[in-house]
């Protein structure tokens, strides 16, 4: 059986909130290392990969592999009933029909309990190759959200270009064009505002802004976001969580004409 308790429901609420508009039905794959999720969007352009490691929970117990087939819209409805600071416990039997969720507000001695019906989801798993990316950009997640929102007003696409001088986001549309350039920036007193660019070779790729703005719904999960680019492979956008857990998005590029 699965039993996994989080000190605050916030992490799980925010993670589900970040992906629910991109993927609808997906399996939460539970085993002794934690809870993982991999799912593509309907048009097979983007892939979500989430890993909540066992260490993120206390306690965490999962004796055998359990796939929890969940409709994320339904899960969101249930999670809406959880206070951000409630403790959250997920429980399931070995061959479960339901996922049991318990929210506890210890200060108020209030306990709420829900059973969410599960479904059988025949899921395709994709092998994600280990990639040595040409450019890895770490930047404030709020800045990335601002850039994608601002450029969305200009165009449906953005070209991300990483060079030794910085990273440039540029869009061209019917009304004109716009760009934002960020240079490496490491303020000692404000680590959250750091912009770091690791570059093995310059790279420029074009992506759909519709998907990028969607990924930015994960912004509350982490102050920093990592963008990893290599020529002609999907972009990886990573929101790192405590203890090595993560929420990653992969987005296939737009190539040629």
């Amino acid at each position: 059986m699965l039993e996994a308790r989080l000190d605050t429901a916030n992490l799980f609420k925010s993670a589900v909130d970040a992906i629910k508009d991109l993927v609808q039905d997906c399996n939460f794959d539970c085993n002794d290392s934690g809870i993982a999720l991999q799912a593509m969007d309907n048009s097979h352009v983007a892939l979500v990969s989430m890993m909540l490691k066992a260490e993120a929970f206390s306690p965490f117990r999962c004796d055998r592999n359990i796939a929890l087939g969940v409709n994320l819209t339904s899960l969101t409805k249930v999670l809406r009933a959880a206070g951000r600071d409630d403790t959250l416990t997920l429980k399931a039997e070995d061959a479960p029909d339901v996922l049991n969720l318990v929210f506890e507000a210890t200060a108020q001695d209030r306990i709420s309990e829900y059973d969410l019906k599960l479904m059988d989801i025949d899921q395709e798993h994709l092998g994600i190759p280990d990639t040595e990316y040409a450019a890895t950009i770490s930047m404030p997640s709020a800045e990335f959200k601002r850039i994608t929102t601002d450029l969305m007003a200009m165009s449906e696409s953005v070209t991300i270009e990483a060079t030794k001088d910085g990273v440039k986001f540029s869009s061209t549309g019917d009304i004109g064009n716009g760009s934002i350039t960020l240079r490496q920036h490491t303020p000692v007193d404000k680590p959250n505002e750091t912009v770091e660019i690791e570059l093995s070779e310059p790279v420029a790729l074009t992506f759909s802004l519709k998907y990028l703005t969607n990924f930015c719904k994960a912004q509350p999960l982490s102050n920093q976001v990592k963008l990893c680019l290599s020529a002609e492979v999907p972009l990886m956008v990573e929101y790192g969580l405590e203890g090595g857990s993560y929420l990653r998005f992969y987005l296939a590029p737009k190539i040629g004409d």
């Binding site: 983007a46 994709l126 994600i128 074009t206 590029p253 737009k254």
Partner: peptide, 14 residues
């Protein structure tokens, strides 16, 4: 601005 590729063109089914 280029043709949108599919993620399936890069990652293989396991």
């Amino acid at each position: 601005t280029g043709k949108q590729q599919s993620i399936l063109g890069f990652f293989s089914k396991t």
